[in-house]
């Protein structure tokens, strides 16, 4: 564990806590893409198949459980909670995320560390996570002004993988035989997708104006 990875995990956890706060405090999920939340739930379920077979550390196990439980709870809440689901922007959240699923799985079959069930699902979860934010970014562009908690949610979600890139650079220089090309390249793509959001987020913070993504 290094400071970059720990900071990244804490930002990831913060993004989830901000999203839970927004949904439970405002009893609303307006501006949140259910499709992105479904993709994230799949990412964690596909990546943590080794949850009960490989024990890495208490921290690792607890964080995996937190990510799985929180992501599935958010999807359940947006679909089933009578009050919350009324505020879901169903007509705006129309990104065809099944293509992202199919493409990620197809790529995982072609590019993986080893052609085994667990490695294919691990690579699938890495590729899927890189593109899972797309429905959310499209929804933000369509829904005009973005409320503060939603903006902070997306910001921390983008920042966490940027810290993981620093973590991989650090490990590359401090550990022998460290090579994690699939995660590195996918992480670069993932962070790059946030580039324009980060720009408009910075502008809104500098000018102290409401965050607005151009359509």
């Amino acid at each position: 564990m290094n400071i970059f990875r720990f900071a990244g995990d804490m930002m990831h956890l913060t993004s989830i806590l901000v999203l839970l706060l927004k949904i439970y405090a405002t009893k609303s999920c307006s501006g949140i893409s259910l499709k992105t939340q479904e993709l994230y739930a799949l990412v964690f379920l596909a990546r943590y198949l080794d949850l009960f077979t490989d024990f890495i550390s208490v921290y690792n196990t607890i964080m995996k459980l937190v990510f799985i439980v929180s992501s599935t709870a958010i999807v359940w809440c947006m679909k089933r909670d009578r009050v919350v689901r009324r505020s879901y922007d169903k007509q705006l959240d129309t990104f065809r995320h099944y293509f992202l699923l199919a493409a990620s799985f197809a790529l995982a079959l072609l590019v993986n560390e080893k052609f085994t069930f667990q490695e294919i699902f691990w690579a699938f979860s890495i590729y899927l996570e890189a593109v899972a934010i797309l429905p959310q970014l499209v929804l933000l562009q369509r829904s005009g002004n973005v409320d503060n908690l939603t903006g902070q949610y997306v910001f921390f979600l983008g920042a966490y993988r940027a810290f993981y890139i620093l973590n991989w650079i650090y490990r590359y220089f401090t550990e022998t035989h460290f090579s994690r090309w699939i995660a590195c390249i996918s992480g670069l793509v993932q962070t790059a997708l946030y580039a324009d959001f980060f720009y408009y987020y910075y502008i809104s913070w500098k000018n102290n104006t409401k965050l607005k993504l151009p359509a």
């Binding site: 080794d50 490989d54 890495i56 690792n60 990510f67 560390e113 691990w122 993981y164 973590n167």
Partner: peptide
């Protein structure tokens, strides 16, 4: 084991 080393990140 190799697998453990491999997936030690979240």
């Amino acid at each position: 084991s190799e697998v453990k080393k491999h997936h030690d990140e979240l």
